[in-house]
Amino acid sequence: MTALTIESTADDHRIAQLAALAISLMWLEASLPSPIPGVKPGLANIVILLVLRQYGLATAAWVSGLRVIAGSLLLGSFLTPGFVLSCAGAASSLVVLALVGRFSARWISLVGVSVLAAFAHISAQLAVVSWWMMPGVNVWASSPLFATAAWLGGLVNGVLAEQWLRKVKHVPTA
């Protein structure tokens, strides 16, 4: 019988730590009351944005995926409709990060990336509800509210992430 040893690398540790940080923010947010039902600021995404800039897309995708799965296990929403929405939002945001993350930080900072990702997030969620979960129901009637929340939330998260990046590590600009 051969002994199976799994060795974790420094990268694994970093991903786990960052995912834990994102999950704590998600958990913190879930325990706070929301002014509008279903609207959350998405603070965990600050971590994803920072990871994207510091470690690249692959690490960001890992952290985001772990956040969605482990976070849902923690909150007891694994495989519920809310979990499916969470997956849809996270996946669409990652697509945006993959596309926009290629542009130089000189042209678009985490602020723009964050707002775009927030719009992708809410669009995917509305699309899933409208086409798959509740077909025929007019979910788009509330889309202005969600779009406004995405714009504001994206801006705030983006500014926080960009400020953080600049204060902690002086990224050479221009």
Partner: peptide, 14 residues
């Protein structure tokens, strides 16, 4: 330096 040209574009389009 915080808000880049692309950010303004995204914010306005948003």
């Amino acid at each position: 330096r915080l808000i880049r040209p692309g950010d303004w574009l995204v914010l306005v389009l948003g």
